Amino acid sequence: MRRPFFSWLMTQRNPVTFDEVQTFANAAFYDHQFPKQAEDFESLSRYLEENASYLHSMSIFDEAWSRYLASEE
């Protein structure tokens, strides 16, 4: 069983960075409604599309999701 995406994403935080995934992680940290226990792409994608104005492009989430899956192998 893999850890929730949010837990992984928080390991990517870096306050002095220009990497888009790290910037996403920094912003998600302050999103108190983020589905912290979610592990599936569809529910996370739906949430981000509808609620995450801080995510400038869904391709950033796609990149983060790829890194997340790779880290869990």
Rank of each mutant, 00 (worst) to 15 (best):
26 N>V: 02
29 F>Q: 01
35 P>H: 07
45 S>R: 11
6 F>H: 00
30 Y>N: 05
14 N>Y: 00
35 P>T: 01
29 F>I: 01
48 L>P: 02
4 P>F: 04
61 F>C: 01
11 T>Q: 09
68 Y>V: 09
36 K>Y: 02
37 Q>P: 03
56 H>L: 07
13 R>E: 08
38 A>I: 04
42 E>L: 13
26 N>Q: 09
71 S>A: 15
3 R>E: 15
72 E>K: 07
60 I>P: 10
32 H>Q: 08
71 S>F: 14
50 E>K: 11
56 H>F: 08
65 W>L: 12
12 Q>C: 05
42 E>N: 13
17 T>P: 11
53 S>I: 11
8 W>V: 04
37 Q>A: 10
68 Y>C: 10
67 R>M: 01
43 S>T: 15
23 T>Y: 11
52 A>G: 08
34 F>P: 03
29 F>C: 08
7 S>H: 06
32 H>Y: 04
28 A>Q: 08
8 W>G: 00
10 M>Y: 02
40 D>P: 04
4 P>T: 04
62 D>G: 08
30 Y>Q: 01
3 R>Y: 15
53 S>M: 14
65 W>V: 09
28 A>G: 02
68 Y>M: 08
27 A>L: 12
51 N>G: 05
9 L>D: 06
71 S>P: 13
20 E>P: 09
40 D>E: 14
26 N>I: 07
44 L>G: 01
66 S>E: 12
64 A>V: 00
31 D>M: 00
